[in-house]
Nucleic acid binder design. Structure first.
Length: 310
DNA sequence: TCCAACCGACGAC
DNA sequence: GTCGTCGGTTGGA
């Protein structure tokens, strides 16, 4: 009920955050959302027409840009040329991400606490909270939420005092639905708007320059035992790698549970930070994504750009 | 606590 | 596409 009252405020808050379907103006301030809006249209067009080998001109047209603007957009957004971006969305690329899928997880485990190897590009410490724990301790705990522009559309961030609890994405006009979808995962929690709390989280999560091992991002995983194990496994997948569902299943010693793993991956409440977009079907197919396959493609393309920047 | 129905972000053909 | 399979989740008892 407190949450209901809070939801009423969103409309007003969102007005400043949402850039509508306007083409990107050079030098426009706060261009993250407008950028993603174009990227989204480009991806949609590419995945629809990929067989016909669309030209840069055609893609730019579909995104509402000139070819030159498209080029600058992708450079700014992911550090990638349009051509390299298209390359990053091919099945071949997905397969190369999947290379050594099984051993990626074992290697991460082995390097563990001592090794120099990074587990996750965005350094994360996590603790798990079972539904039971949540219920028992939930009385005194509150959640704070905020909306923030991100490279993948408007990000909805939910934080508890124990750390980041939820991260969802929304296309223009769907912000409220995204918040409700996220909130419903913890029906007993009291959720209040608090941009001041969530803004620093957003800034840090989406700016790779701020990913630091010394000060890992605190995250709290709230789910069933099985779900938490699956999400912990996802956290082991480094940037530039992907794993398939059956390898996750094998990694948690339930080799036949790949299907259940898929369901659990789909319930991941902390999109992007818990990299469920790095879980692919065995053959490299993207299968599904709670926040839309287009967004999964966007993340994969964006990360391809990060890889080159390392 | 126990059990049966339910239901896929699987995977093989 | 479609189909067999299977285990986690859910909800009622």
């Amino acid at each position: 009920m407190a949450a209901g009252a809070a939801i009423g405020n969103i409309g007003g808050m969102m007005n400043l955050a949402i850039a509508d379907h306007h083409p990107v103006k050079p030098g426009a301030r706060d261009s993250a959302l407008a950028d993603y809006d174009c990227v989204r249209r480009a991806i949609a067009f590419i995945s629809q027409k990929w067989k016909a080998q669309p030209t840069i001109e055609a893609i730019a047209d579909a995104a509402g840009l000139t070819p030159d603007e498209l080029h600058h957009l992708f450079r700014r957004w992911a550090g990638l040329t349009p051509k390299a971006f298209m390359q990053a969305l091919t099945l071949d690329h997905a397969k190369s991400l999947l290379r050594d899928s099984a051993s990626v997880l074992d290697a991460a485990l082995a390097s563990g606490l001592s090794g120099p190897g990074r587990l996750h590009d965005l350094f994360v410490t996590h603790e798990a909270m079972s539904p039971g724990e949540w219920k028992a301790g939930g009385a005194g705990l509150g959640l704070r939420y905020g909306f923030h522009p991100s490279p993948f559309g408007t990000a909805v961030i939910i934080a508890s005092d124990r750390g980041l609890a939820g991260l969802a994405f929304a296309d223009p006009g769907e912000e409220q639905a995204a918040l409700v979808d996220l909130q419903q995962r913890w029906p007993r929690a009291v959720c209040v708007p608090d941009q001041d709390t969530t803004a620093p989280l957003a800034q840090r999560i989406f700016d790779p320059a701020q990913w630091r091992a010394e000060q890992p991002l605190r995250v709290v995983l709230i789910g069933t035992d099985f779900e938490v194990r699956v999400w912990e496994t996802l956290l082991k997948i480094p940037l530039g790698k992907a794993v398939c569902y059956s390898d996750i299943a094998a990694n948690i010693s339930l080799p036949k549970a790949s299907r259940a793993v898929g369901a659990a991956v789909g319930k991941n409440p902390i999109s992007f930070v818990v990299p469920c977009h790095r879980a692919l079907g065995k053959g490299g197919a993207l299968t599904g994504y709670h926040w839309g396959l287009t967004r999964k493609q966007a993340m994969i393309g964006w990360e391809a750009g990060r890889l080159g920047a390392e």
